[in-house]
Simulated assay, not measured.
Amino acid sequence: MPAEGAQKRRNGSLLQGLSLLAIGAALSLPPASTAVAESIDLPVSSRAFSEFAIGSDKRVFGKLEFLGGLSYSSTNPLLGAVSAIRFREDHQTFVAVLDTGHWLTGRVERDAGGKLSGLADLKVRSMFNSAGQDENVKYQMDGEGLAIGKGEVFASYEVFHRIDAYPDPGFMEAAPSRTLPLPFPRNEMRSNRGMEALAMSPEAGPLGATLVAVTERSLDADGNVLAAVLDGPLKGTFAVKRNDPWDITDGAFLPNGDLLLLERRFRLSDGVGMRIRRIDGTKIRPGAVVDGEVLIDADLSHQIDNMEGLDVVTMAQDDIRLIVVSDDNHSILQRNLMLEFRLPQAK
Rank of each mutant, 00 (worst) to 15 (best):
Lys115Ser: 11
Lys115Tyr: 08
Lys115Glu: 10
Leu116Ile: 11
Leu116His: 03
Leu116Cys: 04
Ser117His: 06
Ser117Val: 14
Gly118Ala: 11
Asp121Asn: 15
Leu122Glu: 03
Phe128Thr: 01
Phe128Pro: 00
Asn129Lys: 07
Asn129Tyr: 05
Gly132Asp: 13
Gln133Ala: 14
Gln133Asp: 13
Gln133Asn: 13
Glu135Ala: 15
Asn136Val: 12
Val137Leu: 11
Lys138Leu: 13
Met141Thr: 12
Met141Val: 14
Leu146Asp: 00
Gly149Asp: 08
Glu152Pro: 07
Val153Met: 13
Ser156Val: 01
His161Pro: 10
Ile163Gly: 01
Tyr166Ile: 03
Pro167Asn: 14
Pro167Trp: 04
Pro169His: 10
Phe171Gln: 06
Met172Gln: 13
Met172Arg: 13
Glu173Ala: 14
Ala174Pro: 02
Ala175Pro: 02
Arg178Phe: 05
Arg178Ser: 10
Pro181Arg: 08
Leu182Ala: 06
Leu182Gln: 03
Pro183Arg: 05
Pro185Lys: 09
Glu188Ala: 15
Glu188Lys: 12
Arg190His: 15
Arg190Met: 13
Asn192Leu: 13
Arg193Pro: 00
Arg193Trp: 10
Arg193Ala: 09
Arg193Gln: 10
Gly194Ala: 09
Gly194Cys: 02
Gly194Lys: 00
Gly194Arg: 00
Met195Arg: 04
Met195Ala: 15
Glu196Trp: 01
Ala197Trp: 00
Leu198Tyr: 06
Met200Ser: 08
Ser201Asn: 09
Pro202Arg: 02
Pro202Met: 06
Glu203Phe: 11
Glu203Gly: 14
Gly205Ile: 02
Leu207Glu: 00
Gly208Cys: 04
Ala209Phe: 05
Leu211Ala: 04
Val212His: 02
Val212Glu: 02
Val212Tyr: 02
Val214Cys: 06
Thr215Lys: 06
Thr215Phe: 07
Glu216Val: 07
Glu216Arg: 11
Arg217Ile: 08
Arg217Val: 11
Leu219Met: 12
Leu219Ser: 13
Ala221Asn: 12
Asp222Met: 08
Asn224Arg: 04
Val225His: 01
Val225Asn: 01
Val225Cys: 05
Ala227Arg: 00
Ala227Asp: 04
Ala228His: 02
Ala228Tyr: 02
Ala228Ser: 08
Gly232Ile: 06
